[in-house]
Design a protein around this nucleic acid. Structure first.
Lengths: 190, 190
DNA sequence: CTCGCTTACTTACAGGCTTTAAGTATTTGC
DNA sequence: GCAAATACTTAAAGCCTGTAAGTAAGCGAG
């Protein structure tokens, strides 16, 4: 009965990889245990329950994405920064669909504050520095940007754009152009 | 042993209502059967399996939303139409979170073509008639609009905007202003 | 009206997942 | 080298999905 060397970190990583392979919904404690050659009950020494595992994957994914976005953003400003950030976001989601799906579960505010959620918001605001928006326009713009990225990526990966011949890549590029346009010409409050 | 009068339609409606109450993820065949005072196995005379039930709820929700959007759109044009459509979309999602979640499952293209998916696309294009965009800009704009709506509503209902004091309603209104702005000033292709 | 067919629903069961409890083996640290 | 902590095991309860086979209810035809 040699020990399998299971830790919460390894479990989380394995769960994330499994999610990318078979879909986040299909990641079960049992399947994960199987991968480690261990009985399901063994995992409960390392994680609280199945939901705890899901949250850990979500936090991991948020951190990974924040790292990539930060790297993409380094040394860029204005539209350049906008495009780099957006592409980092979309590329991550496409490369890691399971991790991206994990990010969508509702995290309690405590965990989000501690996690990379804050970093994302800060980076988005950093991009907006190039557009000289003051509050509350800045917050509105942050929300619109995030909505556009998230919406586009979600719909694209769900196959929502696949029934029209127009190149999805091109539409994305034009959407970023449009976003840049509106940020430079943010409409005055009514 | 009186018959319970279960039909696929009633099941679908009950499942949708249940989803709005307890969340789409928590709708099970067993819970649904309980609501009808019937054994779980009885439902398999009316639905193929659990996935079939989910798809039915999704199609129902798509049709309901299309009806509301069409009603909101009637007699309007330009920004007026854009705002009415967007609000119908968001209001539906907020009033029926379970149904809205159901709409996000991947539907095979066959079912989507038959269902209300087509109507949605047509309505979005109808709105764009007021902005005089020609292809492929029109398709790009449709995709951006849909992404923005979907992204905003998803993030809002997931609590993603709740850690900032700015009124979510106001941000939404400004986002629609911004969308109108960019549609009127759609950037020329590079 | 009743016979017989179709359909709705039942019980029974197999198999999978989650989670707790209690026991056994292994490792760590003094 | 031994005690305490930790990793893992089996066992079991509870819930879910889905299939198979049986029973009862309704319906149409004679």
């Amino acid at each position: 009965m040699a020990r399998a060397g299971v830790t919460a970190e390894r479990l989380t990583r394995a769960a994330a990889d499994l999610a990318d392979e078979i879909g986040f919904q299909n990641v079960t404690v049992s399947a994960l245990a199987r991968g480690f050659g261990v009985r399901p009950a063994a995992l409960y020494s390392h994680i609280e329950d199945a939901q705890d595992l899901r949250v850990r994957v979500a936090v991991l994914a948020l951190a990974e994405l924040a790292d990539r976005a930060a790297a993409a953003l380094a040394g860029r400003a204005g539209k350049d920064a906008l495009v780099a950030f957006a592409n980092a976001y979309r590329d991550y989601a496409k490369a890691h669909p399971g991790r991206y799906a994990a990010m969508q579960i509702e995290l309690d505010s405590e965990r989000l504050a501690t996690s990379a959620g804050r970093r994302h918001a800060e980076m988005t605001r950093a991009i907006l520095r190039g557009y000289e928006l003051s509050e509350p326009d800045q917050t509105d713009a942050v929300r619109m940007m995030h909505s556009t990225f998230h919406g586009y990526v979600t719909l694209e990966t769900a196959g929502g754009f696949s029934r029209h011949p127009r190149d999805v890549e091109a539409s994305w590029s034009r959407t970023l152009d449009a976003l840049d346009t509106v940020l430079r010409n943010w409409p005055p409050a009514a």
